[in-house]
């Protein structure tokens, strides 16, 4: 039992260390790693996902 507990603690400790490294990497990541989303993208997605469909629903109403 004792060795199982220790193994479990070791595994948890490894996971936490892994997590910390990942957080550090992601916190430093910027547009180069994760891609940019500029003003034009915002216009495009709002028009595509909301404004145009809403206009379509309005025009299609009986």
């Amino acid at each position: 039992m004792g060795s199982q507990d220790e193994e479990s603690k070791d595994a948890a400790s490894v996971r936490v260390d892994e997590l910390k490294q990942r957080i550090e990497v992601l916190n430093q990541a910027g547009d180069a790693e994760l891609g940019a989303f500029g003003r034009l993208d915002w216009w495009a997605i709002v028009l595509l996902g909301f404004v145009f469909p809403l206009i379509g629903l309005y025009l299609g109403a009986p």
């Binding site: 997605i45 996902g49 469909p53 629903l57």
Partner: peptide, 14 residues
């Protein structure tokens, strides 16, 4: 067609 395409897009977007 109108309700499903437009409605679906709005729901997914939000």
């Amino acid at each position: 067609l109108v309700c499903l395409v437009a409605g679906n897009m709005i729901g997914v977007f939000l």
